Measured scan of single mutants.
Amino acid sequence: NITNLCPFDEVFNATRFASVYAWNRKRISNCVADYSVLYNLAPFFTFKCYGVSPTKLNDLCFTNVYADSFVIRGDEVRQIAPGQTGNIADYNYKLPDDFTGCVIAWNSNKLDSKVSGNYNYLYRLFRKSNLKPFERDISTEIYQAGNKPCNGVAGFNCYFPLRSYSFRPTYGVGHQPYRVVVLSFELLHAPATVCGPKKST
């Protein structure tokens, strides 16, 4: 009989979030998941669920729940959905087409922007091929755009693959930082360890 609440607040209220290319994953298990708490945590810009209804979450049980978190800019949030393409979905964080879970995003301009520009958040701009779903690539190998090998040196047709967002508070919403948490629900042929409040007794 599990009584402890799932530590969603640790994920959502973390002081620092990860850069999207090096997104963070927390496995959540053996706890009571009260998803209604999430609705009250922040004024969400996005709370979209796929393959599951957000209002039914509190009635369900899962084997595992994974919470992935990272920062992107406002106009990239739409890429965090099944079947999307674009720089983020292709080279940084890719959801599977049959994704079961929820994408939660909110504006973090007050936390993640600086007047002089916050350069701490990076994204991958160049990659030889698209990522597979939930693949994480943290390599910093020089990207070869031409025929000549780069031998690890940046220059003509040889690019450092990561680029930094420079978040400034005066930017338009599309270029402001957004914190994203992706909850993916895993149903294996194994005992369910993460249940809503109704199912945990």
Score class of each variant (00 low, 15 high):
residue 1 N to R: 11
residue 7 P to T: 12
residue 9 D to V: 11
residue 10 E to I: 08
residue 12 F to E: 04
residue 13 N to G: 10
residue 16 R to W: 13
residue 18 A to C: 08
residue 20 V to F: 02
residue 22 A to S: 12
residue 23 W to Y: 09
residue 23 W to I: 03
residue 24 N to W: 05
residue 25 R to Q: 04
residue 28 I to A: 08
residue 29 S to T: 14
residue 32 V to R: 12
residue 38 L to G: 05
residue 40 N to M: 10
residue 44 F to D: 15
residue 44 F to C: 08
residue 47 F to S: 09
residue 50 Y to V: 04
residue 51 G to K: 11
residue 52 V to P: 09
residue 52 V to L: 13
residue 54 P to C: 07
residue 57 L to S: 09
residue 60 L to W: 08
residue 62 F to T: 10
residue 63 T to H: 12
residue 66 Y to V: 14
residue 67 A to V: 11
residue 72 I to A: 04
residue 73 R to L: 00
residue 73 R to H: 00
residue 73 R to N: 06
residue 75 D to Q: 10
residue 80 I to C: 02
residue 82 P to M: 03
residue 85 T to G: 11
residue 85 T to S: 15
residue 86 G to S: 04
residue 89 A to S: 00
residue 91 Y to A: 06
residue 94 K to Y: 03
residue 95 L to Q: 00
residue 95 L to N: 01
residue 97 D to C: 07
residue 98 D to T: 11
residue 98 D to P: 09
residue 98 D to V: 08
residue 102 C to N: 03
residue 103 V to Q: 01
residue 104 I to D: 00
residue 107 N to E: 03
residue 110 K to S: 11
residue 113 S to K: 01
residue 113 S to I: 01
residue 113 S to F: 01
residue 118 N to A: 06
residue 119 Y to G: 09
residue 126 F to T: 04
residue 128 K to M: 09
residue 129 S to M: 10
residue 130 N to R: 15
residue 130 N to E: 11
residue 132 K to I: 08
residue 136 R to A: 05
residue 136 R to I: 06
residue 138 I to P: 07
residue 142 I to N: 03
residue 143 Y to M: 06
residue 143 Y to Q: 02
residue 143 Y to N: 01
residue 147 N to C: 06
residue 147 N to E: 07
residue 148 K to S: 14
residue 152 G to N: 12
residue 152 G to C: 06
residue 153 V to H: 14
residue 154 A to K: 14
residue 161 P to S: 05
residue 166 S to A: 15
residue 167 F to M: 00
residue 171 Y to G: 00
residue 173 V to D: 11
residue 175 H to G: 00
residue 177 P to R: 02
residue 178 Y to G: 01
residue 179 R to V: 00
residue 179 R to Y: 00
residue 179 R to G: 00
residue 184 S to L: 08
residue 185 F to R: 06
residue 185 F to C: 06
residue 189 H to D: 15
residue 193 T to F: 11
residue 194 V to M: 11
residue 195 C to A: 08
residue 198 K to P: 13
residue 199 K to L: 12
residue 200 S to N: 14
